[in-house]
Design a protein around this nucleic acid. Structure first.
Lengths: 224, 224, 224, 224
DNA sequence: TATGAATGAGACTTCATTCAT
DNA sequence: TATGAATGAAGTCTCATTCAT
């Protein structure tokens, strides 16, 4: 009857943190198992919460999934917007900065699992796919298109198929994120993302340069 | 029209064709829903077969899934091997042929859904992921590495980070496959894969060329 | 194209044997697995016949089961009747002969599995249970009751609770049959049925003897 | 009576009692149908619980079955041990007490269905059969063997084939249990177990008595 | 708020039975 | 007759969701 272990919690869990704790746990579990195979039991356990508690914050599994996606997207959108606002130097330097940032997000955060989840579940959750398409892909494409168009207009880049080039620029970053959540466990070593980005930028510098100009016409900086 | 009960047999014997019919139907359904959300009822219905019949040919859902993956991989491996055997011209032409073939497989066959399935389910089926990694990815990487190394040795390409370059070459093709099975339904128009391949090859021609050489040093051919 | 293996069968399988072959196989499988857990696939395989063939001879699983029970019962009934007809000596000798015969059936034939099947499935097949009850148990009890009554009337046995004594005589034989199909595989050695019968008869000789008479008043023969 | 939707809660919390309630219901259903033919739906219904609830307490049907067997065995083991501990009088009186107790368990408790279940399913659940063999049969045999050996040593019983005699003593009790769960429903009247036990003891008293001693040398008590 | 026991729809899987060959 | 591919009802089991506590 002596309350020798309940009266003084070592740390107080704040109620306002609950939703984020749950979302974080859900990102882990969804990332490991995929949406359908993930059990809410596991999410609850990893969040240190009971199963019923999940339903105090999210009406069902699908909405929790959407919250996971949104919560991982919002910071990226803000990051992109900040970068867009401050982009004033040479166009290639903007590309460098963007790819560097993407690499960092992929390597350092758990958000790298989001593309895999979207790809896997787009067929089952069309509105989620649409949300991601509108809020992430279209915005990112518009941003990159603008950078490329500016570069072409300023004579920094040769004339380009802009839509295709945007995809060509993004593809290796997407692939890196997918690789990490798919095959990295099978290989001994982790994917060397910085080296990949470096090689990618090397290639891009040569590929985008106006004809007749040497590859050294770029900024010369190296990523990361 | 009066013999309404004898003219249409309830089923027909198809021992030879059934497995492939089932695997085809399963590829459709798995491709649309993912492994976990796919119902065997739907697979059976699409194969024009009853649920029980699936179990005459596959011991369970997981093995059916593996058979789907395998059946879509085998032709690709054969394709790659045929291409490897006949590769004797300029190295860049080999790249062109390879990317063209990949584009065709992605556009014309249903195998384009396989990468999405592997990515989505690698966590739940590690041995399937390993199988795919060993049999497809490693082989494809080895093949591309060989082509690049040969190009460098023959002075056709500048010195390269070969591992990274392989990934950079493959990434847009993978992205195309994923795009088609993820977002294409959301956009009005289909992804213009040939244009993407063309732009990719354009870029690669410039990016891989030895320094000091103009972009016209390539073969000049256009894909597809 | 040379018919070197199909034109001259080494032995011809006669059509009229089929039903019995199937019943024999079914007794094996039912005996091992019980009725519900037995698969007709296994019965067919053990009979060297296809699954469909079973249905040429038996309308369904339940009727096959009944045929199995009947086919194992008929010889026993005949045996009992033959024994009943020739019973003329001392009453205890009739008991000895009867128990000896039961022991033989249990040890030498596969019919020992029948009691187990009846016991296990009586709840699911009441009419089968009734059939067994009427045709086997009642007859056997009547036979034994008659022997005991005769013995009492002739002063060979003391006054007895005949119904109870019948059960006491039969119980060890039933137990032996059940033991063989239940626990014998778990023990190193098989149950020594002859020894059990010998001890049983020893006991019975003493237990049935009229009071005041020594145990040596019996026939002194030993079973098996 | 008008508040027809709030007065009856859909379910109540019963964490403490649920397992036993389920095991009791399962004993009923398994006893009636046998393991394979028993439906978990029926078990759940009889326990007043939903199908899913079963899986909160037992991982699958097989484990539920084992729990049923175990739960019916434990009290019997304790009973036997209690009896063994207090056995100090004449050996035959111990036998009388033992058989009386067995008769009570068979008549008054539902555990009488256990032997039938074990016999029916030993082939499908060898480890369960082994468990029963080790924990029940061997112990019971050892106990009875000890009583008999003591009786022989003390001159209360004639020299005996102990192993066989143990089986001869137990057989009628086993048969009674099986009879009750097999044929009793077919007959108008229930099996008169006490009469059977009485006759059994009568016989045993005569059969075990040392030669030259009258049957009146026993304790003279009557069972139940 | 928080819990977790309880629910029940829905999925996979089995297998007795049917029937085209 | 004989076969065995095909069927589909029925059962076990899972897990998102509810709700008494």
């Amino acid at each position: 009857m002596t309350d020798d272990e309940s009266s003084v919690p070592r740390w107080r869990r704040r109620k306002q943190d609950r939703p984020q704790e749950i979302v974080d746990a859900a990102l882990d579990v969804f990332g490991e198992r995929g949406f359908a195979a993930a059990r809410l039991d596991d999410v609850a356990a990893r969040a240190g919460v009971s199963k019923g508690t999940l339903y105090l914050y999210f009406p069902n599994k699908e909405e929790l999934f959407k919250a996971v996606v949104r919560s991982a997207i919002v910071p990226n959108l803000e990051m992109a917007e900040r970068l867009l606002a401050g982009a004033e130097g040479p166009s290639f330097a903007v590309l460098e900065a963007l790819l560097g940032l993407m690499a960092t997000r992929i390597l350092r955060t758990k958000a790298g699992a989001i593309p895999k989840l979207i790809i896997a579940e787009a067929g089952n959750f069309p509105d989620l796919a649409r949300f991601y398409y509108e809020e992430v892909i279209r915005r990112a494409f518009a941003l990159l298109s603008a950078v490329l168009a500016r570069g072409v207009a300023r004579g920094e880049f040769r004339p380009l198929d802009i839509d295709a080039t945007v995809r060509l620029i993004v593809a290796p970053m997407l692939m890196s994120a997918l690789w990490r959540s798919t095959f990295e466990a099978l290989e001994g070593r982790p994917l060397d993302v910085p080296a990949l980005v470096r090689a990618h930028l090397d290639n891009l510098r040569r590929a985008l340069a106006p004809d007749g100009e040497g590859p050294d016409g770029g900024t010369g900086g190296s990523a990361s």
